[in-house]
């Protein structure tokens, strides 16, 4: 089983990152919504830490993913013409949001003045100065990015299923490597 990508197939590394991040991102958004609605207490305070740890992991993974795709470029979309360009633009936007969402969350956490811990142990350096105004703005951006990402991921999933049902093997290619 090939680890690397080729012009018409996804290698194992790209597929593992793709599905790992899919699971991570959907869990992160579910957890993030839970955190934003819950009444904080000593018994659920750890959920903030879990969200930050998972979010920073997702951020690390997307950076690794981009690096890996520079080393081993993935195959392009199976569509042709304007659809191909549209799908590419959609994927680029997904990447932009996969970076922007954790960065905004990290900045908001930094602005709150409370240490951001990774895995409850390592203190992550603050991105911005402590400020209530900055905290407010970054949290709004974090929410907008996360919700846009969720919407775009849902469309991405539906589109993949639709193309698979149309018979072009888009979903199969991401599952097994080849269409």
């Amino acid at each position: 089983m090939a680890l690397r990508n080729s012009p018409d197939s996804f290698g194992l590394i790209s597929r593992l990152i793709h599905w790992g991040m899919a699971l991570l991102i959907l869990s992160l958004i579910a957890l993030g919504l839970r955190i934003s609605w819950m009444e904080p207490s000593l018994s659920n305070l750890w959920l903030y830490g879990l969200h930050k740890t998972m979010g920073l992991s997702a951020f690390g993974l997307v950076l690794f993913r981009i690096l890996w795709h520079l080393i081993s470029p993935p195959p392009g979309p199976l569509a042709t013409g304007w659809q191909r360009l549209f799908i590419k633009a959609w994927h680029w936007t997904l990447y932009a949001l996969m970076i922007a969402t954790p960065v905004a969350g990290w900045a908001a956490s930094s602005a709150s003045g409370i240490d951001t811990l990774y895995a409850g142990t390592f203190v992550v350096p603050p991105l911005v100065e402590v400020s209530e105004r900055a905290e407010f703005v970054w949290f709004i951006l974090h929410e907008i990015f996360a919700k846009t990402l969720l919407g775009m991921v849902i469309v991405h999933m539906l589109a993949a299923v639709k193309r698979e049902m149309g018979g072009d093997g888009t979903l199969t290619r991401m599952l097994r490597g080849r269409a």
């Binding site: 000593l42 305070l45 209530e132």
Partner: peptide, 13 residues
């Protein structure tokens, strides 16, 4: 009583 509270307490807010 927990570390975040001490940091929040002493912080600018």
């Amino acid at each position: 009583s927990f570390p975040f509270a001490a940091q929040a307490l002493k912080g600018p807010k």
